[in-house]
Simulated scan of single mutants.
Amino acid sequence: MEYDLILARSVTYAQRMQRALNRAGIRSQLFRAPRDLTDLGCAYVVRISPYDLGAALPILRREGLGPLRIYVQRGGDIQEMGL
């Protein structure tokens, strides 16, 4: 399965992202960021469908919740995507 992972700097920031996406009808899940993705100790990711990324980014930016980074997860492989 393929997902997009939107990196947030804290659990609170990720929760705000998730609420903004939910209000817009975009389903998301919240997870602790894998250690190899960030050197921030408390970073979290919001996982969404890759089909929703184009709609999600403007919503997050409008809410002042721009992501730190975006990753693509395909099976067990995770690769950084350019912003």
Rank of each mutant, 00 (worst) to 15 (best):
I48S: 01
S49Y: 03
L68H: 05
G75Q: 00
D39Y: 05
P34S: 12
L40W: 07
Y44G: 04
G82C: 13
R32Q: 15
M81Q: 14
G54A: 08
R74S: 13
Y71P: 09
R62Y: 04
I78D: 03
I59Y: 02
Q79G: 10
I70W: 00
L60G: 02
G75E: 04
P67I: 11
S49G: 07
A55S: 08
L60H: 02
S49Q: 05
P34Y: 05
V45F: 05
R32F: 14
L65W: 09
D39H: 07
D77L: 15
L83R: 14
R35T: 15
R32H: 15
R74Q: 14
R69Y: 10
V72T: 15
Q29G: 07
E80S: 10
P58H: 09
L30S: 11
R35S: 14
R35M: 14
D39Q: 14
A56D: 01
D77S: 12
R27T: 09
R47M: 12
D77M: 14
C42I: 05
L57S: 01
G66P: 13
A33K: 11
A33G: 10
G64F: 05
P34I: 09
Y71T: 05
I78Y: 01
L60A: 03
Y71S: 10
G82T: 13
G64L: 06
I59S: 01
I48Y: 03
Y71E: 08
L60Q: 04
A43P: 04
D52T: 03
P58A: 10
D52K: 06
D36I: 15
C42T: 00
F31L: 08
E80H: 04
C42P: 00
I70F: 01
G64Y: 00
L68G: 10
P67A: 11
P50E: 02
I59K: 07
T38V: 14
R61W: 13
R74Y: 05
A33P: 10
G66E: 13
L53P: 00
M81C: 09
V45W: 00
L68K: 10
F31H: 09
I48L: 05
Y51R: 13
C42Q: 01
G41I: 08
Q73E: 06
I59C: 08
S28Y: 01
D77R: 15
R47P: 00
Y44K: 12
P34G: 07
L57I: 11
G66H: 12
Y44S: 08
V72K: 14
R62D: 06
Q79S: 15
L53Y: 01
R35W: 13
A43S: 09
L60E: 04
G76P: 05
G54F: 00
A43M: 03
L53D: 04
P67N: 06
T38F: 13
Y71M: 10
E63F: 00
V46F: 04
